[in-house]
Computed example of a mutant assay.
Amino acid sequence: MSPKLTRTILLAGTVGFLIVWVLEFRRTTLFDSYWLLLLSITCLLFFQFSRLKSSLELKKKLEDEERGKSVKVTKTVKK
């Protein structure tokens, strides 16, 4: 699965669980509906983790490319 799709699913899960929690909280008590809030927070934390992980990988990749450009390999001519 692509990272963008994973992040989209996690963000949609966060919003969905939050909406269901609000509706359930109005119907029952916090004690009976806290598990929906926990699922929403969990999805949000996984979303943030995925986003930060991909940005760190991109930053590392750019640094590696930059190092490769700065160090040029040249052949020496034998006399």
Rank of each mutant, 00 (worst) to 15 (best):
V71E: 13
F47C: 11
V20F: 01
A12P: 01
F31Q: 10
E24Q: 11
L23Q: 12
T14Q: 12
K59C: 08
Q48C: 14
P3N: 13
K72E: 08
R51T: 03
L37M: 12
K61H: 08
W35D: 03
K78G: 12
L58R: 12
L5W: 03
K61G: 06
K75R: 11
W21M: 01
V71Q: 15
F31W: 10
S33Y: 00
L11M: 09
L10F: 00
F31R: 15
R27Q: 12
R51V: 02
L18T: 10
L11N: 14
W21Q: 07
E24M: 07
T42G: 08
V15D: 10
S50K: 08
E24N: 09
W35K: 09
L11I: 11
T6W: 04
T14E: 13
V20S: 04
K69L: 07
R26A: 10
T6D: 05
L45F: 09
Y34M: 06
R7L: 08
F25V: 03
G68I: 00
R7E: 15
V71C: 14
I19T: 15
K69D: 04
K53M: 04
M1P: 15
F49W: 11
M1Q: 14
R7Y: 01
E66C: 07
L23P: 09
F31N: 14
K72N: 09
K79S: 13
F31T: 06
S50C: 06
L45I: 13
F49L: 13
S2I: 04
T42K: 00
D64H: 03
F31M: 10
V71D: 12
D64L: 10
L10V: 03
R7F: 02
E63V: 06
W35R: 08
E24W: 05
L37F: 11
S2C: 06
V20C: 02
D32W: 07
F49C: 01
A12L: 11
S55Q: 15
Y34C: 11
S50A: 15
L10R: 01
Q48M: 10
E65R: 15
L52E: 15
L44N: 01
M1F: 15
T74Y: 05
K61F: 09
T74V: 11
S54C: 08
I41S: 05
E24A: 05
T76W: 10
S33C: 04
S54T: 07
L44Y: 07
G16A: 06
V77Y: 07
S54A: 13
E24H: 06
S40F: 03
F17D: 03
S33I: 04
V15Y: 01
S70V: 11
K4W: 03
S54H: 14
I19L: 12
K69A: 05
E65W: 12
S50L: 01
L39V: 02
K61C: 07
G68P: 08
W21V: 00
C43A: 05
L38E: 09
E63R: 04
Q48H: 10
F17Q: 00
S55H: 08
I19C: 02
K60I: 06
F17R: 02
K59M: 12
E24Y: 13
S2R: 04
L10I: 14
K53Q: 13
